[in-house]
Write a protein that binds this DNA or RNA. Sequence first.
DNA 1: CTGAAAGCGCTTACAG
DNA 2: CTGAAAGCGCTTACAG
Lengths: 340, 340
Amino acid sequence: MKMSDVAKLANVSPATVSRVLSHPELVSTETRQKVLDVINQVNYKPHIVARQFRTKETKIILVVVPDITSAFFSKVLRGIEHVAVNHGYQVILGDTENDIEREKEYINLLLQKQADGMVLLTARLNKANLEEISNHFPMVLACEYIDGLNIPTVSIDNISSARKATEHLIKLGHTKIAHITGTINVILSRDRMRGYQQAMMSHDLDIDSAYIQEGDFSFESGYNQMLKLLALENPPTAVFAFNDDMAMGAIKAVKDSGLNVPKDLAVVGFDNIKMSSIHEPNLTTIDQPKYEIGKKAMEMLIKLINKESIHKKKIVMKDELIIRESCSSESKVRESLEVI
Amino acid sequence: MKMSDVAKLANVSPATVSRVLSHPELVSTETRQKVLDVINQVNYKPHIVARQFRTKETKIILVVVPDITSAFFSKVLRGIEHVAVNHGYQVILGDTENDIEREKEYINLLLQKQADGMVLLTARLNKANLEEISNHFPMVLACEYIDGLNIPTVSIDNISSARKATEHLIKLGHTKIAHITGTINVILSRDRMRGYQQAMMSHDLDIDSAYIQEGDFSFESGYNQMLKLLALENPPTAVFAFNDDMAMGAIKAVKDSGLNVPKDLAVVGFDNIKMSSIHEPNLTTIDQPKYEIGKKAMEMLIKLINKESIHKKKIVMKDELIIRESCSSESKVRESLEVI
DNA sequence: CTGAAAGCGCTTACAG
DNA sequence: CTGAAAGCGCTTACAG
């Protein structure tokens, strides 16, 4: 059943059927009703791909995520999807599983016009390349970004957030503070490490290079790197982890070593995923406005698609240090260690 | 830049360019190379929507999921996506957030041919309706299903799994066993409740109707329903929860009431999500082969799309009871209660 | 092995 | 307010 069939049944031209569907205000009430009756009667559904082909609009946006199973990204995704659906867009999800090759493949979908635009939650590709693409296709970055690029971006200020997290530990009296990073080829990992270093240096604290251990965002890597830190001759009394998953992994390692968090070791996470408030001990962490980041990113993308002007190309969202149970003051740590 | 432009530059017909792209074996090596050179030189990308329109294939499959933020579904999704990508399909994700209306909307995408097929991870629509659609479009159900329907389905045997979970508690000596269900309009909730009831009845145990409380799959509902159970005059000594999220919520409620799991109350969850082995106490739970369910479902869908025959329309995957810390024997529970 | 031509199912500028 | 006609960018059956 195609449009011309409906047209015949309703004794009108295909153009009229098309108008009833896409611009009903252009059709007289009477004709419109007649056509709608036929449409309902035969349960006609327009062939969307034909429409897409004709109008050059897919009404699809592509979201590229580094890890779909992550509690953090799924919240961002939901923000994106809500705005998308409200504006009549469908979301194609591209999960790269932290693989750059797969990131490239998904970008090809955009180049081949299978989507009207794209939100990148991971941006690890060649800078020039990405900028070139963004000059021709609507694209916004969220969470991750690329320095010195003119692409609309929404994120928090990761450096200052990380500084804040580290300073919290310093205020509690800790001086031997370690950092478990994310994969270091990701800019966010470098930013949060930078924030950590800034905090340490501005308080004249030494950073033992063995105190910086590279993880890969996963619980397991947090666990393994923490074990390494605990094995040091002079182990840290506090750890700042790139994200909550790794923070929980680190805590597990501490527990498995017969020690206690926060009594023997203070831990700060990042993201404030739901589990961070359920986990025992509750995680002190940096809250990112996950849903809002997704929402804002999608709102910007829709403006780009509609060629509306964007006042601010870089949006920095507010983060917040959430103080919970996983940190205690260094004095407590010392006490507990003396008991051992 | 379109195909005809490339054709001109390469001094061939558009048909030849098309063949180079889609059926290179039909073109002589020489011509093929000439065309490929031009394609690379001008960085031509075929317009996929035009191809889709022409071939009536979108190479897109739609996955409808009730809750994208759930750790359970994201694993299933990953299984689906791996198989999809390996077969050249993209995945459109439809998150219904447990809303039937949105389930309908996504199904419309299929009817409008925006996808070659569909995997439903939620099936709450009208039965006749769904069957009708599945007669015309490739579709498979996974996890959730509908009774007495001829649609290919992959899931575990929820009734027997729930029976097994409950019997584990019975074997530990518990007799006052409560059940926190999922939303009861979902068949899986009814199945797991059925399994619970079967286990209780086959061991001649009474089911106090107040021992069955309906949650909504969320951590919070597990928490709230557990609070209700604890407030009963004759509270249970064990609880079987529909899923791990609710089990963790229930445990939090127990803790917040000053009691201990498993000493004062035994808890069994369902799904074996990652957190269940990190959470303290570790959850005794039923493992579902999440990734494999997704994989199998997508494999079946691809067979359907290719009109290959399917030997078995219903695939029942193997579950497994994972025994961890959240349950102890009833005697221990009694002891501990006597201490109080 | 290659080309000319038809056609997929819509939408829209144009004419009336 | 409505219709006739062109055309979006590909693919493929057919002919040579």
